[in-house]
Design a protein around this nucleic acid. Structure first.
Lengths: 221, 221
DNA sequence: AACCATATTGACCGATCGGTCAGAACAATC
DNA sequence: GATTGTTCTGACCGATCGGTCAATATGGTT
């Protein structure tokens, strides 16, 4: 039984920690690091404030944990990309995946955006290390696609930034978009239309001919 | 002399108010509305805290004034656009102007972004009123361009959002971009390269043929 | 029942928050 | 040199901030 109780206890702890993390993600995403208060997070999580600090140690530790959790969610993006890949398929998948991730984790995405806006004081290492390497390696492959004549000779870094910005926009600027469109929220139809638009413009804009590959319907991955 | 002293005095007041507004813009742009403190703004402006409140009334009034100032700066964008305009010229100009505005007013742009991230509590009226009309009227004209065969049949609203996001990205995400690129800041050369890239991809992506207008190189389609 | 590690939380701490106010400092008019 | 209106600011207010801590509650082991 001792073998079973341990996981049970830690499972309970895990449940509470997730409740705190989700509440904190909401508060931080709206008000940023400095603007968020532990009291507001505690209220959202329906726990006493002292309990938040018991589990998370400090405001900063809680915040950093949220950033790490969000970064881990992005790990799958553009994972298997090679010089032999089809640019149309890969970029389509890139666009679709980013749109979906933004819709799945709106609070985390906004939290990340707020951190960057604030000058990324807690993300120095990640941005200048992991992420820089990520961009450099993908850029090198895209560069090869251009040399192979698979697409126009565009700067791959600007292309990556373009896809990032265009997709993230619909999460981070949702308050503006819904008001401009006069809606409560974007529905599935909107998102499909937006995704198709971005695929059309970006792929065509890079001189990528749509072969037998993706577009509206097929395409596996 | 009495006629001259009055404007002199109010000119002095104007000078101080601008100093406060610029300091506040910096602080708010980094920490958002709730995260910013009047003390930090006062320190940045090198004035006593009570002086800030003497000139601005309250934290909220100061913040709203900054939002209005920023919105006024955007008024010139896409001002003279007609169904007879050349899409390539207009959209090129749109892209270039947005890039320049972001570089000219980085703090104001970030302040605006933070307000949207927070759910735009102070911008309801503007977004659902002025800005919605602005988008609707421009979208109607772009729609006509499509009908005239001047460009592909894309949703004009997504096109406007794309240009907004792609250009604003280089201001609001400057902290991420500089670290990923390993630079201190973007220089003129970078900005020219980025602008040209965006013009190339977006115009070509919308099926707009580059006539006798601008652009540096060729590009078929 | 005794024991112990972990969980829980009300009460409290010094610092800082936005905002008020009385009075000093200043400048122009008579 | 009074008078008057504006500018300026130190001192202060109640509320809230992140964080600490002692006391209590809980649950499994012996």
């Amino acid at each position: 039984m001792t073998v079973e109780t341990a996981p049970n206890e830690s499972a309970n702890r895990e449940r509470i920690e997730q409740r705190i993390l989700n509440a904190a993600e909401q508060i931080f995403s709206v008000h940023g690091y400095r603007g968020a208060s532990l009291q507001a997070i505690a209220d959202k999580a329906e726990l006493p404030k002292a309990n938040i600090l018991y589990y998370m140690g400090s405001k900063q530790a809680l915040y950093v944990r949220l950033l790490n959790r969000m970064m881990r969610r992005w790990n799958a993006v553009l994972e298997n990309i090679t010089p032999e890949s089809d640019p149309g398929e890969v970029l389509s998948d890139f666009i679709r995946t980013k749109i979906v991730l933004g819709q799945r984790y709106p609070d985390g995405s906004k939290l990340f955006a707020a951190e960057i806006l604030a000058g990324a004081p807690f993300l120095d290492e990640y941005l200048a290390g992991e992420l820089r390497d990520w961009v450099a390696s993908r850029a090198a492959i895209i560069r090869q696609w251009s040399l192979q004549g698979k697409m126009d000779d565009v700067d791959p870094r600007w292309l990556i930034f373009l896809i990032w910005s265009a997709t993230q926009h619909y999460t981070e600027y949702s308050a503006q978009i819904t008001r401009v469109l006069g809606r409560d929220a974007l529905n599935e139809e909107d998102l499909a239309s937006i995704t198709q638009f971005l695929e059309h413009v970006i792929l065509k804009g890079c001189g990528i001919s749509l072969l037998a590959s993706s577009q509206a319907s097929s395409a596996a991955n």
